[in-house]
Amino acid sequence: MTYLRHAHIMSGPLTAALVAALIVLPLLAGNYLTYLTIQILILSLFALGFNLLFGYTGLLSFGQAGFYAVGAYICAKILLVQPSLLLGVLGGTVAAAVVAVLLGALSVRHTRIYFSMLTLAFGMMIYSVAWKWRDVTGGDDGLVGIPRAPLKILGIASISLSTIEHYYYFVLVVVLLGVFFMYRLVNSPFGLSLQAIRDGETRAPFVGMSVTTHRLLAFTIAGLYAGLAGALLPPLENTVTPVMAHWTTSADPILATLLGGIYVFSGPIVGGALFIIIKDLIVRVTVHWSIVLGTVVIILVMGFRGGVAGIVAGMVARPRAAPAPAVASK
């Protein structure tokens, strides 16, 4: 547990330096790097939510892409009718949370492979709905021409986000807030309870914890984060397609988290950056990127057990760090 708690992500000069670097990035970098950083920020948010379930609660979900797609589709539908970015993003996020509550109620009583298979099935059900309900979702063609609507604040101000730089700052603010709330959450009594449930499912009820309620809350928050991440995508890409809900999309936050580190708060963020940058570098070199990316991921996952951030953290803080949650909880 020391591992999870000692990562003070929101404090320190280096945190400030990184945030400052992210703030000035569009001024120094080109449009593409700005665009790529938006993708990293979105995947980081998606993976952070996923890791609340996986790393902190011990539940491996293969269906997070379903909530990601719900957030994206609802946001897109709202933006196509009412061009207000805040409304679209909020609508997508809330819708994903509602779907997560409903599906979570059916899933969280199960654990291990049963939970994973249930979430996979629910995720693919959402994928099927996205594919088949053509009148609403556009079917296989998806929804196109989604505007990057202005940011309207209570009818007082309207900020144009038509340029990639402006949209970057909107995403950056949302993601930083998301990271901050997640950090507070995992270090709150609720977050510590989740870790207690993860490490001692049988013991937790004896101290008065409702395992099901805690898991359902974690599932809903993870779904909400997935929905928020998904809702940030349509204004960036102008399009939403069913592949967003496919299980292969669910693999993205899993890979990002494994690459970065499950037991380090910033692991999913580092992993998200690694995943997108490695892929981006590989596709520049070869069209056979999937073989090379697969090889790199295998090497990283096998060579850096505990994730890149986890290994580096372990090297830096070796005397104080507990190597594994099972040992730490004893």
Partner: peptide
């Protein structure tokens, strides 16, 4: 804190 230092360093290198 050190975890975050290492994480931030990795990310800055990746950006570069």
């Amino acid at each position: 804190m050190r975890t975050w230092i290492s994480s931030a360093t990795v990310m800055l290198i990746l950006l570069a």
